[in-house]
Design a protein around this nucleic acid. Structure first.
Lengths: 193, 193, 193, 193
DNA sequence: AATGAATGAGGATTCATTCAT
DNA sequence: GATGAATGAATCCTCATTCAT
């Protein structure tokens, strides 16, 4: 007896299952069947709702981006000075939710996908642009014209720490990684030009 | 027309073909057949010499690591002061050979493989340890006890710039990326504690 | 045009096709594709339902064992005295269904498989134990303590005649073979100790 | 530095390696490469001397038959009365060399091959005819016209015990099996008609 | 809304066999 | 006499995807 209004529930379950499955496998070598089984539905239904494997992956990616965006906004809500806001933006990149296990693994794989799948690339670009714009917005009052290079530096540092976190159990310490970036930010801000 | 002593030639050709193919595909989703065809041999021969797909990938990874190591040594040969050596180590990570196209893409994918394949993880660890040890060796005379954290910072920065380079055509400028890291190094060295 | 409840139908068809194909080939060198084609389905479906080639073989073996067991029970139903039951057990081994063509060939090959595949060995052991226990149950009233050795002798004779039947067109006369064993049984029963 | 007169040595080594390999594998699923490696030569050489895999198998079979024939003749040399000769023929089928391990396994597989390969069938027929003729030659003085059926019975029994021996570690007792056949022979001889 | 049934396409891998040296 | 080099053909198996129910 099929029920009405199942669509959003199924979609959400499938997206979550996709992220989890990728996280567990450590790669995009994941079958639709397994994802579907994990979500408690048939593989056919996954296709019914998402059209194909790739779309499922992209939906998962979008979901992660959405969560990330929400995290940033939440962090900013409590910050008032530029310095505080900057720190909030940085720490948002290292929220527990975003910075570990399944999600980091998913990110790493999305990086790879971005080389091939245009839509994946588009999404990554959005993320990068948004991060850069967030950083610059608060760096400008602090470092003026140097906001651009400094933002690039911090962004690269954030991504670099991502990789390290994805590769081994050591250093899987979000807070410490965040602190490193914050320290670096302070150093760059204090630098005389 | 079989000739003797072909083994090393074939192995080298297959390793090169593997790196190129991964680079072109942008992912590890590459068939042995295609690699073999690119190397001008049959898929069966690839198996004959390497045992399987995974071993072929690992051989490619080892090859990249070897080239990287050679590049570092070459750079160090001409450097004399700690500062010069440090810069040489950093620039080695951004040699033309290592820092672009196929190779960066291959690296990115090996990162992913390292989550799953133990031998890949082992190789990555070797790379990371070697990089860190190289950096620290020359940082110690310059920053003393802060060598550890500083090395970590620089290493993360290097990796972060890798990712950026792998993701889009923009910023594929090895020299510029290297310079960013060098500048950062100088900044960290000059920092009073 | 997929219909529901096809699984048992397909499984049965595939098992039958397996036995026929082995019988025709005269060996286990049979491809899944051929079996599937004979059953009127794709090779992929065979894998879907059975998991693999080996499982398909084992299912075929189990099927033959089941038929054999049913034949024995049917024969025993009409026998009343120990002597009559003994004859029924013997003749069951030489039922038309069990003692010729595809099935004998399949048996011969399963013997070979039993050297390698544990589950095949297990099934063969079950068959042997069951045959021996059937023979002994009715021999005990007739020959007392000699039931064990006599049962072994008769069982070996049955198997030996199997081989002969599998090897050439000559002597493919189930009834005659059965009669030989029955005569031998009578001789052994009559023997004074 | 190739040596002269290697051919018979290589052939013998390859035949032995074939039998051993089949025995170890428990089936005919044996690669030429493995056989060659076991014999200490290249796979190409095996083809050079035997033309192909099948011929190698047949040569192995012929070798076993030759050994068997020699064993029978050796046994007969010391026997004088028909009864003694009969026992010698029977025991020859259960010589240690013939009745265990590699060889039994090889036999079992040759039975299977005989269903498909004409030359294998021909060889098996020769063996069977020879065994029957040996048995009958000595049975005639003992049981007269019943020699034919009795020989068939004994031959089937011998084959039946072969199978049992090939299938499990239990009952791998050549002497005991031989004794069973001899006892049966005596029983049949003593039987009044 | 949901799924069991079914398949085509493709990929890794194995192996007997050939050939030039 | 002997082998390394090389391959074509075959086989098992996996998987995304489709379709009727």
């Amino acid at each position: 007896m099929p029920k009405l209004g199942m669509e959003p529930i199924r979609r959400a379950a499938l997206v979550k299952a996709t992220i989890d499955e990728i996280g567990q496998a450590g790669s995009l070598d994941v079958t639709v069947s397994r994802i579907a089984r994990r979500a408690g539905v048939s593989a056919a239904l996954a296709h019914h709702y998402f059209g194909g494997k790739e779309d499922l992956f992209l939906a998962a990616m979008r979901h992660i981006l959405t969560l990330f965006g929400a995290g940033v906004r939440a962090g900013l809500r409590e910050a008032e000075t530029p310095r505080a806001r900057l720190e909030a933006v940085i720490r948002a990149s290292f929220q527990a939710e975003q910075f570990r296990g399944h999600v980091v693994s998913a990110w790493l794989n999305f990086y790879v996908a971005a080389q091939t799948v245009p839509e994946a690339q588009r999404l990554l670009r959005i993320y990068q642009r948004r991060l850069r714009s967030n950083l610059m917005h608060d760096l400008r009052p602090l470092v003026g014209a140097r906001a651009g290079p400094v933002a690039d530096m911090l962004a690269a540092l954030i991504d670099g720490l991502y990789i390290r976190a994805a590769l081994g159990p050591e250093a899987r310490d979000p807070a410490a990684s965040a602190q490193k970036v914050v320290d670096m930010a302070d150093l760059l801000i204090g630098e005389v030009t």
